[in-house]
């Protein structure tokens, strides 16, 4: 790679990056809220609306899935689904929308993505905490294995972040990027395991379904929430490995996009 700057030490570079990301975060908040502070609230409400709408829908149709309350079942699935999909969705066009900021040498494409994803991680995590009042009013029992719930949630965020890096890079790198991203997004409605459990499938087909990393996260979430009341199939090792591979792929793509330069619209 051609050398364009003086060599900066790692700690100095890290300082600059922290500064830039925090400035970007504030910028995003201002842009969202129009300075009235409603923006962040709206961001929190957005995933909440989706989750609660689906809960109400399920609640009205039937009360239990197997021996698990339907609200809990729906929430566990949808939280996982939106945990990763929201990040992908919001990170997709972040580079195009902030291109003018790249005029400042310190601002890197990766920083733009990082700022946006931090904000999304906060908003989806806070709406994930919706579980707390629901547990409190007794609609859902307290998780049998809370650590699994937390670990699964972290895995979801990690996965969403990696996929966000991938989709936002594809969006910038390929002409058909937007279309490809939409396909990936729609696919993730089905391959996160939100609608069903692996146990419901014939044993021969479970292996194929478990190829999708997010199915493991959802199963783990349900194991954490319901314990022995459901039979969960998942492998922590597989999920972590898949996430690492996806993160690596994402970083490679971001690097490719950075080298190409987002200034260059010429493809």
């Amino acid at each position: 790679m051609p050398e364009t700057t003086q060599q900066t030490t790692f700690s100095r570079a890290f300082q600059i990056q922290m500064r830039v990301v925090s400035a970007l975060l504030r910028r995003e908040l201002i842009a969202l809220s129009g300075k009235k502070g409603i923006g962040f609230l709206l961001m929190l409400v957005e995933p909440l609306i989706f989750v609660s709408a689906i809960c109400v829908f399920f609640y009205l149709t039937r009360r239990t899935v197997g021996n698990v309350p339907v609200v809990a079942f729906a929430m566990s699935g949808y939280c996982v689904m939106w945990g990763c999909r929201f990040q992908m969705m919001k990170m997709m066009n972040v580079v195009a929308a902030n291109r003018s900021l790249l005029y400042h040498r310190y601002v890197k494409i990766f920083d733009l993505m990082l700022g946006r994803s931090i904000l999304q991680i906060c908003s989806t995590s806070i709406s994930f905490l919706m579980f707390a009042p629901i547990i409190y009013i007794g609609l859902v029992d307290f998780p049998v294995k809370p650590y699994l719930v937390v670990f699964s949630w972290l895995a979801v965020l990690w996965y969403g972040w990696s996929l966000g890096l991938i989709t936002s890079s594809i969006y910038g790198l390929v002409k058909m990027g937007e279309k490809i991203c939409i396909v990936i997004m729609v696919l993730h409605i089905w391959i996160t395991g939100a609608f069903m459990m692996v146990e419901w499938l014939p044993p021969d087909y479970r292996g194929y379904y478990l190829l999708f990393p997010m199915v493991h996260a959802t199963e783990m979430m349900r194991d954490g929430l319901f314990g022995n009341r459901v039979t969960a199939h998942y492998s922590v090792l597989y999920m972590v490995c898949a996430n690492m591979v996806l993160t690596y792929l994402g970083l490679v793509l971001v690097r490719k996009l950075s080298q190409r330069g987002a200034m260059d619209d010429s493809d």
């Binding site: 790679m1 051609p2 364009t4 700057t5 003086q6 040498r105 330069g261």
Partner: peptide, 18 residues
């Protein structure tokens, strides 16, 4: 100008800013 400013990468060669 953009390459000198460091917001676009050169295809080859280098820009050193002190």
């Amino acid at each position: 100008i953009r390459i000198i400013g460091g917001i676009e990468n050169p295809t080859s060669g280098s820009v050193t800013r002190t």
